[in-house]
Design a protein around this nucleic acid. Structure first.
Length: 115
DNA sequence: TGGCTGACTTTCG
DNA sequence: ACGAAAGCCAGCC
């Protein structure tokens, strides 16, 4: 907060919007979001953009994981457990740091939104 | 102004 | 099949 990020570019805003559109009980991957945005889509950028989302309740960053369904960014949360806890709270089973049934829980914006 | 970093992904060995 | 390295792009110092 304290207007540190203050969205300098639309890239972050797009990422937030897509992440915000992730259905409850679903998860998405960085590459999928990056590809959907397409504005210089790179998976790292999505993760980097999430840095600005840290602390925002509007952006369910806990629903965003890597391509294997691994909670790589859990360490960036308030607590490394909050990510898994939130996912489980939504009905997503998480074993350790990996999402169970990620294959069927994977929500791809470019696919679900079917552009 | 220039350069480093980073919550990933893909390909070569 | 597994391991390691490079690529990607934008924000931040």
């Amino acid at each position: 907060m304290t207007k540190y990020s203050q969205k300098t570019t639309n890239f972050f805003d797009d990422v937030y919007e897509v992440v915000r559109l992730i259905p409850h009980g679903r998860v998405s991957s960085y590459g999928a979001i990056a590809k959907y945005i397409g504005s210089g889509g790179s998976a790292r950028m999505v993760g980097w953009a999430m840095n600005g989302c840290a602390g925002r309740d509007d952006v369910p960053a806990h629903r965003v994981v890597n391509i294997v369904g691994l909670l790589t960014g859990k360490m960036h949360f308030e607590t490394p457990f909050s990510m898994a806890e939130k996912l489980e709270s939504e009905g997503v089973k998480v074993e350790g740091d990996q999402i169970i049934g990620f294959n069927k829980l994977h929500w791809d914006p470019a696919q679900e939104l079917a552009l």
